[in-house]
Design a protein around this nucleic acid. Structure first.
Length: 233
DNA sequence: ACCATTTGACCGTG
DNA sequence: CACGGTCAAATGGT
């Protein structure tokens, strides 16, 4: 897939580390936003299902998206980092790339404010490792797609195995957005505990579905998410 | 030559 | 001390 680059999510990332995580077969790649903002990205292959790629986004973006497809016009915004906040009125229609189409196909997440108390957004979480802890400032998105896997920069991620299914999911956990919100806060720290039993019992061994109310940030699609969090401390 | 990635080392945290 | 995250020199590609 020769779109803008591997797994382009609207930002430019530079890989700065690859570590073998204890108890996992696959290494975890760490990527940092090249624009110098605090956001980092971790990419790891799922233990349970090697076709599952787990992507953790950490921290807040203080930069703008750089992907050519993201900003329809006048993408000259600012080349300087740390200046602008991501515009929050992004719409999923702004990225007409094939990649986006694929992503959107599996996307389950649309967040809302807690103003609407009963709102529960559905998303899928693919458990990755037993030891993995979902930290503050993290939400993960997981996608399975052979096209994506081919384009991941971690060499070990390249998978000849084909899966014609595209999954994408996102799960916020902890972080500024959720601090102080009882429901989500507990979810953030105990995510694996919560997920595991569901996973073992569920029909699908690869992921569990959860519903919970989101708070304060939007994930309109995987390439086009917006944090409304306060700045990274 | 420049730039991105790789990879071992280093550092912080629990 | 173990583990995970980041740094930075080395390496490879363009």
């Amino acid at each position: 897939m020769e779109v803008e680059g591997p797994l382009d999510d609207g930002y430019s990332w530079r890989k700065y580390g690859q570590k073998s995580i204890h108890g996992t077969k696959y290494p975890r790649c760490a990527q940092r936003n090249v624009q110098g903002c605090m956001a980092t990205k971790q990419v790891q292959r799922s233990e349970q299902d090697p076709t599952v790629i787990v992507i953790n986004y950490r921290g807040n973006h203080t930069c703008i998206m750089v992907s050519s497809a993201v900003l329809p016009s006048g993408s000259q915004e600012n080349k300087e980092p740390n200046l602008s906040i991501i515009p929050q009125q992004q719409s999923a229609e702004q990225k007409p790339s094939d990649l986006l189409m694929n992503l959107r196909a599996g996307l389950r997440v649309l967040t809302e404010n807690l103003d609407q108390p009963s709102l529960a957004s559905s998303f899928h979480y693919f458990p990755s490792t037993s030891t993995e802890k979902m930290e503050d400032q993290v939400f993960s998105s997981i996608m399975i797609d052979n096209n994506f896997a081919e384009n991941l920069t971690c060499p070990s991620y390249v998978s000849p195995a084909a899966s014609d299914t595209t999954y994408l999911s996102a799960s916020p956990s902890g972080g500024n957005s959720f601090r102080g919100h009882p429901n989500v806060a507990s979810f953030g720290t105990e995510i694996n505990d919560m997920i595991s039993p569901v996973t073992s019992a569920a029909n699908s061994p690869t992921f569990a579905s959860l519903n919970f109310p989101f708070d304060q940030f939007h994930i309109l699609d995987s390439q086009n998410f917006t944090f409304h969090n306060p700045p990274f401390p």
